[in-house]
Write a protein that binds this DNA or RNA. Structure first.
Lengths: 111, 111
DNA sequence: CCTATGTTTAACCTATCCGTTAATTAACAA
DNA sequence: TTGTTAATTAACGGATAGGTTAAACATAGG
């Protein structure tokens, strides 16, 4: 039990509804009802999605009267990106060029 | 059913065993047995993890005699990274500086 | 106090995930 | 043919995910 942080983040991102919520939150804070509006699923379902996002650290929440608004916290995305960056050399053209450049430099000037 | 591509990729990355397999494959191709060796789980379990990774496009597989070797295919990681890049402004210091710079430029020189 | 509004929690259902062991398939080798 | 090695498929089980409806909780306002 007690899953590692990265797994929690990726798992949170694996659901399209949750990704859509994050996209919406990129425009600014929103209440649960506002976030639920575009979807054809129940409010409790949205509420649980928000809990998942919160536990992954992808959102933070605050209350004001009976409204609870969510705010995007993208730091975990940075973590996830950093993990994937280890694989950039396998797909990134620029990385390949940089790699070639470094090899050239390392071999020293010849010609 | 028929989940979208990005969800499949993130879901594949949400498992620590699968991420470890990808890490191992970054060093080069490997057979199922070789990939299973560091783990204390059964071969069938590894076999299914590989199927998940293959369906996410994160690995490709080839056979040679009775061995099936897996090879890293990192293109999907690029897709995932690109999705997350839309949120860079929320955590990347450099992006923040760039953004500030652009705002300054847009407002025109004044002072 | 009573009620309306916003949200969460409880209880439940179904499907999928991740693991197991046992059986099966595939290819080589004696 | 028989056996060995590599891997997958089948069948099962427990835990978790994601949805539902109904009930509970929290706050504002008459």
């Amino acid at each position: 039990m007690a899953e590692d942080r990265l797994s929690t983040i990726f798992a949170a991102l694996a659901d399209p509804t949750r990704r859509a919520i994050l996209t919406r939150l990129a425009e600014g804070e929103a209440t649960v009802s506002e976030l639920a509006e575009p979807f054809s699923i129940s409010l409790p379902a949205i509420s649980r999605h928000l809990k998942v996002l919160e536990q992954a650290g992808l959102i933070s929440r605050s209350r004001s009267a009976q409204w609870r608004s969510s705010r995007l916290e993208a730091a975990p995305l940075r973590e996830a990106t950093e993990w994937m960056d280890r694989y950039r050399q396998f797909w990134d053209v620029n990385f390949t060029r940089l790699d070639a450049h470094l090899k050239r430099v390392q071999e020293g000037p010849m010609s």
